[in-house]
């Protein structure tokens, strides 16, 4: 009923073209037969085959997925606790510091987070001998730390929007606080926890800078491997890898979108 102006429409069109044309070209060039990635040499799927043969890629991807899965799960547990604490326990000692520490990782430049965590791991190793080797465990801890902040914020805002009288009603009907958390609160914030887990998983898979700081020699995540390759310029097997990731993400997001749309309309 209210029209948008021609200016707005054209900026929208330009904006979406700006966002999607580069990705589209990567997809197109992943099927390029030529070794020189910017010259078209006919259709081929050889780079996908090459990817499958590449042990380095597979190892890096495996490490990335292990880290992302573990970090997202730990971040969801810790972040849900933190979100509950912030939204439902109004007063406790050190609350200001707590909420400050929850929100700060969201705006902290990655180089600082990465550097500070590495220095912590080095100091810890000097003091306690742990971690003897940096790799899976240190990257997982680093990712858990910054991802739990996102989960906490999502859970907290879901709880803030939720009627507290639901929990009060459950207690009125005889539920003990801990039972009420498991019977009422957790089922109600489950969508927020799932969203938080997915976000944490993606953030972990996506991270290059922090992982570069806190990983040791011999353990490369997928972004670290990609970075070492693209430093040298455009390469066709990275195009293929990018296309796979774009396809997986797009399908996943579309399914999630259609699912939420159906539940909302039902």
């Amino acid at each position: 009923m209210r029209k948008t102006s021609r200016f707005t429409t054209s900026v929208l069109a330009f904006g979406y073209a700006f966002l999607y044309i580069p990705l589209l070209l990567v997809v197109v060039y992943s099927f390029n037969d030529s070794r020189i990635a910017t010259v078209w040499g006919g259709f081929s799927t050889r780079w996908y085959g090459a990817l499958w043969q590449n042990d380095q890629v597979l190892d890096a991807a495996l490490l990335s997925f292990r880290v992302a899965f573990t970090a997202a799960s730990m971040a969801t547990v810790l972040g849900t606790m933190a979100g509950l604490a912030l939204a439902r326990f109004r007063r406790f000692r050190g609350r200001t510091l707590f909420s400050g520490m929850i929100t700060s990782p969201l705006v902290m430049p990655e180089v600082i987070t990465g550097l500070s965590l590495l220095l912590l791991f080095v100091s810890l190793q000097q003091l306690t001998g742990w971690p003897g080797q940096r790799g899976f465990s240190t990257i997982t801890i680093a990712h858990t730390t910054f991802a739990m902040a996102y989960v906490a914020i999502i859970v907290q805002s879901r709880l803030a929007a939720m009627d507290e009288s639901l929990e009060e009603a459950a207690m009125d009907l005889g539920g003990r606080p801990l039972r009420v958390v498991f019977d009422i609160t957790l089922p109600l914030i489950a969508p927020a926890m799932i969203a938080g887990w997915l976000l944490a998983f993606t953030l972990s898979l996506d991270d290059l800078v922090i992982a570069s700081f806190v990983s040791g020699p011999g353990s490369s995540t997928l972004p670290m491997y990609i970075f070492s390759k693209v430093k040298l310029g455009v390469s066709p097997d990275i195009n293929a890898l990018a296309t796979l990731i774009i396809a997986i993400v797009t399908i996943g997001v579309l399914i999630a979108w259609l699912a939420t749309r159906r539940t909302r309309s039902a």
Binding site: L19, P22, L205, D206, P223, I226, I246, V249, V253
Partner: peptide
């Protein structure tokens, strides 16, 4: 469509511009 690229690797999105 605004959020979708955000879920695709940051590094790969920067990389896409190298080819362009």
């Amino acid at each position: 469509l605004i959020v979708l690229p955000f879920w695709i690797s940051f590094l790969l999105r920067v990389y896409a511009w190298m080819g362009l």
